[in-house]
Design a protein around this nucleic acid. Structure first.
Lengths: 199, 199
DNA sequence: CGAAACGTTGACCGTTTTCAATTACAGTGG
DNA sequence: CCACTGTAATTGAAAACGGTCAACGTTTCG
């Protein structure tokens, strides 16, 4: 992971800004003129779309390393609110600069497209994962997708509490499921990593 | 919807091919040299990734109107199998032609990026939707996201059977939930459309 | 006209969620 | 250096919810 936002390099470093947000602080509001795209460096930014009837729907929660509001590049105004869920830091990539860089060099635009295509691939896979109803099967599928080498080993870079949200199961279920899978000999749990065992 | 693949127009029509697949037929195999990107015209293409340990994981199921294997543009070989779930038709967009078109004109590359960014936005929203556990809340959120006008009306362009898969609930649950929401006065069901009622 | 797909509803079962309680640490400030 | 607080990791038990099976009327379409 996490070359996710390599395209930030397309903009001159001097044009990038850092912004620090405290919990609950807004990065931008729905309707504000779209002036920048963002990359979350730390913390978590929640994007919420407000609807005509007064209700709202969460459309994304960008974690550290992820970018958000790319679509703002082609929009006049932001289509959702962005609020920090926790103290966060974001890199502000001015829309004008990024567009200029992309328009000037086809290679740059292709790099950008490539990053987006990678993200589309990832998101589709995640979505497909959610179609697996059974908790153990889903967890196994998630593990297999990110396993490397023989025997298959998955390095755990963040707490299960966080991973469980990505997998879409309550964290208790994850623990229980892992324990059971280990008992059944499907995997082995070690400090910071999981080894998928043959059968 | 479904300008999803407007970028197909970037390639000279004469270079596009149509391919018809019968149920179960393979469009390409993991490891095959990546030669094209595809747009599903009808039917459904299932993408499956095969893993080192012999197991496999579904990474996507492209329905009519969707494109697939965009990432193949930057890959030597396909990273998954593509098999028709049902009789299907796809437009074959030769990788070389598309890359050439994108590389020649920054505007074209930007259009491509734009389409991908839109898809990223959609996929994130769908994923976020899946985080809503409660069936009625999930259904309502889905409806609200695609409601237009005041009062909010959702036009139904396809059978619930299909929609239920997108929402991620068994179709029976959808029917039951809709019936209950209607009973509770949260919405009204009419021929081919749903009206969200105030409260 | 008949087969398929769609829409609908009831009932039951199984799984996941939720609530609760406990252990283990890591970091903080006195 | 040590209580003290907060997060992560676990596990148990009960409740709730969605999944699945079944049955049936309806519409669609070849």
């Amino acid at each position: 992971m996490r070359d996710t936002a390599a395209w930030v390099g397309l903009v001159a470093p001097g044009r990038l800004t850092r912004r620090r947000l405290s919990a609950g602080e807004a990065l931008f509001h729905q309707g504000d003129p779209a002036t920048a795209v963002y990359v979350v460096d730390s913390g978590r930014i929640r994007l919420v779309r407000h609807l005509e009837d007064g209700t709202s729907v969460a459309v994304h929660a960008a974690a550290a390393g992820e970018s958000c509001a790319e679509a703002a590049l082609w929009a006049e105004a932001y289509h959702c609110d962005a609020v920090a869920e926790a103290p966060s830091e974001v890199t502000v990539v001015p829309k004008a600069d990024l567009l200029a860089a992309l328009g000037a060099d086809p290679g740059a635009a292709l790099d950008f497209a490539r990053a987006l295509a990678g993200q589309v691939r990832d998101l589709r896979a995640r979505l497909e994962l959610r179609n697996i109803r059974s908790a153990p099967e889903r967890v196994l599928a998630w593990l297999r997708l990110r396993a490397r080498g023989t025997p298959a080993v998955v390095a755990l870079d963040r707490p299960w509490t966080e991973i469980s949200a990505e997998i879409g199961l309550a964290r208790e279920v994850i623990y229980r499921t892992l324990a059971k899978l280990e008992r059944d000999g499907r995997l082995r749990r070690e400090e910071g990593r999981i080894t998928l065992t043959g059968n």
